[in-house]
C-alpha cells in the first residue's frame, strides 16, 4: 500500500489582517503551521497504512525551503519519508500550476494507491489543488471525504454535501480530499520526533521533474492577483446590558423590522 499525502505550509491566518485605516498588513510574527485540514489527511494516511499492515506514507509539498519544517512535523507523526518540490521556477504558482507541479512530483515517485490532502488550505481556501492533481494524473477523486475505507484496490468513501453525504465506490489509485470529521489526528511521539530530526528530506527542483517550464510558477498560472484590500469594516454594534426583559425588548425592537422586511 503506497500512500502520498500532499500538505501545505500556511501562515496561521488568524494573525494576518489588514489595518483598515492604513490599508497595510498587520502581521504579528505570522507563525507558519501545517494547514489544519492536512493534519487529518496525514492521520488518515497513517491509519490506512496501519490497517493494511504494510506500506509507506510519503509526504509531499511544494514551496520554499522552509517548508521542510512542516515535512518534519509530518514525519514526527509517523510518515515514512518526505519530498519537497522547491525551485524559484515554481514561485507564483496559482492552483493550475501547483496541481501541474505536484502531479509531476507524484509521477516521479510512481503513482501510489492513495493520494490524500486536506479539503482546502486555510490561506487560499480554494479547494482546487486536490481535484487538479487528480485531473493531471487522470485518476478519480472524491472531495470532502468524511469516511474512507480501503480494501482490495477499492475505496468506499463518504463525500460530505451541504445536506447529507454521498456514498461512493472508487477504484484505486484515487485522490481524496478530507474534512475534519474523518478522524482525530494523533500527537507526535518522542521516537517520531527523534526520527524527524534526523530524516533526510528529498528536494526536487524543475530539473528533477518532467515538466514544461512554460507551465510552471507565475508563467504557467492563468490567474493574477491584482489587488489586495481590507474587507469593509463592520459598523460598530450596539450592546444591550441590564435586566433580561429590557435587553430582550431592546433587541426585539431592532430585529423584528429586519426580519419582517426579509420575509
Amino acid at each position: 500500500m503506497k500512500i502520498v499525502v500532499l500538505i501545505k505550509q500556511v501562515p496561521d491566518t488568524t494573525d494576518v489582517r489588514i489595518d483598515p485605516e492604513t490599508n497595510t498588513l498587520v502581521r504579528e510574527g505570522v507563525p507558519s503551521i501545517v494547514n489544519p485540514f492536512d493534519m487529518y489527511a496525514i492521520e488518515e494516511g497513517l491509519r490506512i497504512r496501519e490497517s493494511a499492515g504494510e506500506g509507506t506514507v510519503t509526504i509531499m509539498s511544494m514551496g520554499p525551503p522552509q517548508v521542510e519544517t512542516a515535512l518534519r512535523e509530518a514525519i514526527a507523526l509517523g510518515a515514512d519519508d518526505a519530498v519537497l518540490l522547491s525551485d524559484r521556477a515554481f514561485a507564483g504558482s496559482d492552483t493550475w500550476s501547483t496541481s501541474y507541479t505536484l502531479a509531476a512530483g507524484i509521477r516521479k515517485l510512481g503513482v501510489p494507491d492513495v493520494i490524500l490532502c486536506g479539503k482546502q488550505a486555510i490561506d487560499g481556501d480554494t479547494a482546487q489543488v486536490g481535484p487538479g492533481v487528480a485531473t493531471f494524473l487522470d485518476v478519480p477523486q472524491v472531495t470532502y471525504v468524511k469516511k474512507l475505507e480501503v480494501e482490495n484496490g477499492t475505496a468506499r468513501a463518504e463525500r460530505m454535501l451541504e445536506d447529507g453525504h454521498d456514498v461512493l465506490s472508487v477504484p484505486l489509485p484515487a485522490v481524496f480530499t478530507v474534512v475534519k470529521e474523518i478522524n482525530e489526528p494523533r500527537l507526535p511521539s518522542l521516537k517520531g520526533k527523534m526520527k524527524a530530526k534526523k530524516a533526510e528530506i528529498t528536494v526536487w527542483g524543475e530539473d528533477d521533474l518532467e515538466v514544461d517550464s512554460a507551465e510552471l510558477g507565475l508563467d504557467g498560472s492563468p490567474t493574477r492577483v491584482i489587488k489586495v484590500f481590507a474587507p469593509e469594516p463592520r459598523a460598530s454594534g450596539t450592546v444591550f446590558e441590564g435586566e433580561v426583559d429590557e435587553t430582550v425588548d431592546a433587541l426585539a425592537k431592532e430585529l423584528v423590522p429586519l426580519l419582517r422586511s426579509e420575509a
Binding site: W96, T135, R159, L161, T223
Partner: peptide
C-alpha cells in the same frame, strides 16, 4: 460554490487549461 460545484469545475479548468477563482 457548492460541494458539487467546487468538485466539478477544478477538473474542467485543468482540462481546458484556464484560470479558476474559488468562492
Amino acid at each position: 460554490g457548492t460541494s458539487v460545484g467546487r468538485s466539478l469545475i477544478p477538473r474542467v479548468a485543468i482540462k481546458v487549461r484556464s484560470g479558476l477563482t474559488a468562492d
